[in-house]
Simulated assay, not measured.
Amino acid sequence: MILPDGYSDIPAGKVAAIVTHLEMTARPVPRADPAGAWTLRRVETPPLDWFRDLYRRVGEEWLWFSRIRMPDAELTARLHSPQLEVYAMVDGNSDEGLLELDFREPGHCEIGMFGVTARLVGTGAGRWLMNRALEIAWSRPVERVWLHTCTFDHPAALAFYQRSGFRACRRQIEVRDDPRLDGTAPRDVARHVPVIE
């Protein structure tokens, strides 16, 4: 459905975001790595508790909730798919970044999840992690690498992806039940998105 021009009401109890899809169809010139002692660890068969904990620590403030609401069997099947790769960015002895690369569509790589915890925001860790993501993605026989971001995400996310070589290619509106109203997310997160009951 195409929304008409003008304002469209969003029912109470819902949240709405503008989702921007971005893509690259050729490997970009690599950006210089920032200084940092991070490492990347592939997690072959991610345990659900580990995955959801890191997912929350990276994305709860930005209203990441799809993997929290996903039934265990569905999430397990997704994470354990041989065409989906999950990586942890390690800072010292702690997993502080999440990267999910989805190769299930031949010739394409979707960066399904990407982010670092609040402790690393602004340190250059995101650029370091994106450099690793693009190295891995473009080492495979792909013709397109893509991802999406939305207006719930960190305000610098869209510009960061564009600096990394992605270009916007599609825009959508996503409407969902507010995860703070059913306990999926704490009530006090994402203050940049007001709760309307």
Rank of each mutant, 00 (worst) to 15 (best):
residue 19 V to G: 07
residue 28 P to Y: 03
residue 82 P to Q: 02
residue 132 R to A: 14
residue 115 G to C: 04
residue 107 G to H: 12
residue 74 E to F: 03
residue 124 G to E: 04
residue 34 P to W: 00
residue 44 E to V: 13
residue 15 V to S: 03
residue 142 V to K: 08
residue 31 R to I: 11
residue 132 R to Q: 15
residue 146 W to K: 08
residue 109 C to D: 03
residue 100 E to Y: 01
residue 109 C to G: 09
residue 87 Y to P: 01
residue 160 F to C: 03
residue 84 L to R: 15
residue 78 R to E: 08
residue 143 E to H: 14
residue 133 A to I: 12
residue 123 T to V: 06
residue 152 F to E: 01
residue 88 A to V: 02
residue 175 V to E: 12
residue 194 P to M: 03
residue 134 L to N: 11
residue 147 L to D: 05
residue 34 P to T: 04
residue 97 G to P: 09
residue 42 R to T: 11
residue 117 T to H: 11
residue 96 E to K: 15
residue 139 S to R: 09
residue 4 P to A: 10
residue 118 A to G: 12
residue 128 W to I: 10
residue 130 M to K: 06
residue 22 L to A: 14
residue 137 A to V: 09
residue 63 L to M: 15
residue 15 V to P: 00
residue 42 R to F: 05
residue 139 S to H: 05
residue 44 E to N: 03
residue 81 S to R: 15
residue 160 F to N: 02
residue 41 R to Y: 01
residue 12 A to I: 10
residue 142 V to F: 12
residue 117 T to D: 01
residue 185 A to L: 15
residue 1 M to E: 11
residue 101 L to F: 08
residue 145 V to W: 01
residue 163 R to G: 00
residue 133 A to E: 08
residue 151 T to V: 06
residue 67 R to H: 14
residue 62 W to V: 04
residue 143 E to V: 13
residue 65 F to T: 04
residue 64 W to K: 07
residue 182 D to H: 05
residue 123 T to C: 04
residue 181 L to I: 09
residue 163 R to E: 06
residue 86 V to T: 15
residue 116 V to E: 01
residue 143 E to Y: 04
residue 178 D to C: 10
residue 185 A to I: 05
residue 170 R to V: 07
residue 194 P to G: 00
residue 47 P to L: 03
residue 147 L to E: 07
residue 8 S to E: 06
residue 85 E to S: 13
residue 181 L to G: 07
residue 120 L to C: 09
residue 197 E to S: 11
residue 54 L to G: 05
residue 34 P to L: 06
residue 12 A to M: 09
residue 26 A to C: 07
residue 130 M to R: 05
residue 134 L to R: 10
residue 4 P to C: 03
residue 184 T to S: 11
residue 25 T to K: 13
residue 60 E to C: 11
residue 126 G to F: 04
residue 94 S to H: 14
residue 62 W to R: 06
residue 148 H to Y: 13
residue 138 W to S: 03
residue 190 A to W: 07
residue 160 F to Q: 02
residue 72 D to P: 04
residue 160 F to E: 02
residue 55 Y to W: 04
residue 22 L to E: 10
residue 176 R to Q: 12
residue 105 E to G: 02
